[in-house]
């Protein structure tokens, strides 16, 4: 086994230890409080130490090309045990979930919010074709594939979706772990927020649902059950929502908003 790989493992253990010892921190901001979980510290530490200014000498061995490639290539496999856990959360509550099954399906349509809220703002800021790529969805693999097939990734649309992809990859988990408790404090029901966490990205969903669990620990099993059922549904229906609803709706709004300017 490569020596650098051992550094990677030791580094991961150290980061986990530090993040867990910092623990859950609640930071009040005005009348809100933002809860920061160990997972937020873990991603923040690893991202900051990965900045190129730090990557000298020993750090260069930890963040070697092979190690970074390993992490990005196999992140999905590292994530599999989390997905395997969700069965155990959903199974005991399957009856209840099926009972409100139609609510799960309806909230999928909420993912059109990317077009309804994002597109007008993007047009207002002066973006045009980039906006198509940037607001079709949250820029995960599904949207990347769709946009690159339809417009190629070198097009303006492609640049838009790639930008969202990059921003989401870097900050999505942090964003959702802060945003979902804020909605909770605005008066949303925790069950509704749990259902909404199935946005189609594993790390964003885990960050959002984990921060809800931290706020309402008594509801842990319900939160995780709803979150994972919704995530699973998004992986089934997400493509259809995008192709048959989001994309046509986007074209309609786009044409309406940019009419007469060329």
């Amino acid at each position: 086994m490569k020596k650098n790989f051992i550094y990677l493992i030791v580094f991961a253990l150290l980061v986990i230890t530090v993040a867990e010892f910092i623990g859950f921190q609640s930071i009040p901001i005005g009348s809100f409080s933002i809860g920061l979980l160990p997972l937020v510290f873990a991603i923040a530490i690893t991202m900051i130490l990965g900045l190129s200014i730090f990557r000298k000498g020993f750090w260069k061995k930890v963040y070697s090309k092979e190690n970074v490639d390993f992490a990005s290539k196999y992140l999905i496999f590292i994530m599999l045990p989390l997905m395997a856990r969700y069965g155990a959360d959903v199974a005991p509550q399957i009856g209840e979930i099926i009972q409100v099954g139609w609510v799960f399906i309806i909230q999928e349509l909420g993912n059109l919010g990317t077009v309804l809220i994002g597109l007008p703002l993007a047009i207002m800021l002066g973006l045009r074709r980039e906006a198509i790529g940037a607001t079709l969805g949250i820029g995960r693999e599904g949207e990347l594939a769709y946009i690159s097939e339809k417009y190629t990734l070198e097009s303006k649309e492609g640049r838009g979706v790639l930008s969202i992809y990059i921003i989401g990859t870097l900050f999505g988990a942090i964003f959702f772990s802060i945003f979902s408790p804020i909605l909770l404090q605005l008066g949303f029901q925790v069950e509704a927020l749990a259902m909404a966490t199935g946005v189609g990205s594993g790390s964003m969903m885990s960050a959002a649902s984990a921060s809800l669990v931290a706020q309402v620990p008594d509801m842990e099993s319900t939160i995780l059950a709803y979150a994972s059922a919704s995530q699973l549904l998004t992986s089934f229906l997400g493509t259809f929502t995008m192709v048959f609803l989001a994309a046509p709706l986007q074209q309609l709004i786009y044409k309406f908003l940019v009419r007469g300017d060329n």
């Binding site: 909230q107 909420g110 980039e130 940037a134 969202i164 989401g168 909404a196 946005v199």
Partner: peptide
């Protein structure tokens, strides 16, 4: 695009949460 990203993420999550709450 960064500003748009914030609205896009907010849109998908708040949109789903609103519909779920209503449902």
């Amino acid at each position: 695009i960064a500003l748009v990203a914030i609205f896009v993420f907010t849109g998908t999550y708040a949109g789903s949460a609103l519909l779920a709450q209503l449902g």
